[in-house]
Design a protein around this nucleic acid. Sequence first.
DNA 1: GGAGTAATCGGACTATAGTCCGGCTGTGCA
DNA 2: TGCACAGCCGGACTATAGTCCGATTACTCC
Lengths: 206, 206
Amino acid sequence: MHGDEDDGRRAGSAVPLELLRARPARERADAARNRAAVLEAAARLFAEHGVAAVSMDQIAAAAGVGKGTLFRRFGDKSGLAAALLDARERVLQESILHGPPPLGPGAPAAERLAAFMDAYLDYLLEHLDLVRMSETATPGARYRIGAYRFWHRHLAILLAGGPDPEHAAHAVLAALAAEHVAALLPELGEPRLRAGLHRLAIGRLA
Amino acid sequence: MHGDEDDGRRAGSAVPLELLRARPARERADAARNRAAVLEAAARLFAEHGVAAVSMDQIAAAAGVGKGTLFRRFGDKSGLAAALLDARERVLQESILHGPPPLGPGAPAAERLAAFMDAYLDYLLEHLDLVRMSETATPGARYRIGAYRFWHRHLAILLAGGPDPEHAAHAVLAALAAEHVAALLPELGEPRLRAGLHRLAIGRLA
DNA sequence: GGAGTAATCGGACTATAGTCCGGCTGTGCA
DNA sequence: TGCACAGCCGGACTATAGTCCGATTACTCC
């Protein structure tokens, strides 16, 4: 899924469990230590100086690892951002799949849509810079990470009544892009942005 | 507006004509020559190797100018892309302002909306890589360039009947972002994408 | 035609993302 | 406990965007 660091334990892949256990499936102790050190250092530096102002060199130095380790582990800066967001994303996804209505299953589609827009916007506003980094570091990154596919699938199902739910879901997600929200927030303010996004999801834009 | 290179002749600014003529308003002959050489070299290299695969160094070398000249003139890579798109954009903007209906004034808003979506998508698909570069080179670039403001204003006027035309216009433009269209095109194909965008503009998404 | 001036020129310089590979070490096995 | 090796480590290396400033040169005014 999203945090696809290239270690052995990929979740949800089709590889049989035996094959994973054939080679040392667990990551080495030093690798685990370094991973934790990197995530901790990155979180601290990002919080301290802002996401954009922190270089990968600084993170590597602060974590006490080499650049090679950093990049092999997380791919690039967007991968590092995704890894930091991973836990938060899982919580939201879990609430959607198995949580109580209206965010979870059991409520009418329109109510679930509204709940999703609110919940996603909450998540986005809380981590705007980090999400922005994870979406824009490399061209097309946003559409490749597993999280996008999850949100898209969820929206397409909720929009199933319309003419083209697949495209409608993409259109809603376009308006939820971190870059877009970051640009609109100072211009419109949060309440107006939130209301507009609700109308978009409901299909009452014009 | 969009191609805001920092020479003396800014179009559409509020500066009185006298002030512009007080200092040497015309660009120097060598500057004009270099500007043309850069644009020509960039257009050729972009067409030959693709926008992403051409470095600013290569462009400078091919144009026979130094890097300093290149960057002073166009600011950054997105500025260069914007300058190359400038002529095309003006044509579209002119058609909207003074051309025949339904793209130009005189037709009902719904028809003008459909015409705009078609015309903009034509423009976008024809120069997808270049627009993408101009929009994504630097964070927030898309929302700062004058062209975005133009499209937004136009859409907001056409969407005037709805609850929040300003936000609706932003939402439509979010779905027209080069990054977004580039990601959806291979997945949905052009006809489906076009149809979906029409529905979005009409407000019949769901 | 000549001097003054202001803008331009261009290449050296910095900062950062991302790659590569020789050496090392933790881990599983005997 | 010792061995073999897969996988990890980390810093040197490359490529590119963007900055800076001394030298140069086009334009203006006398």
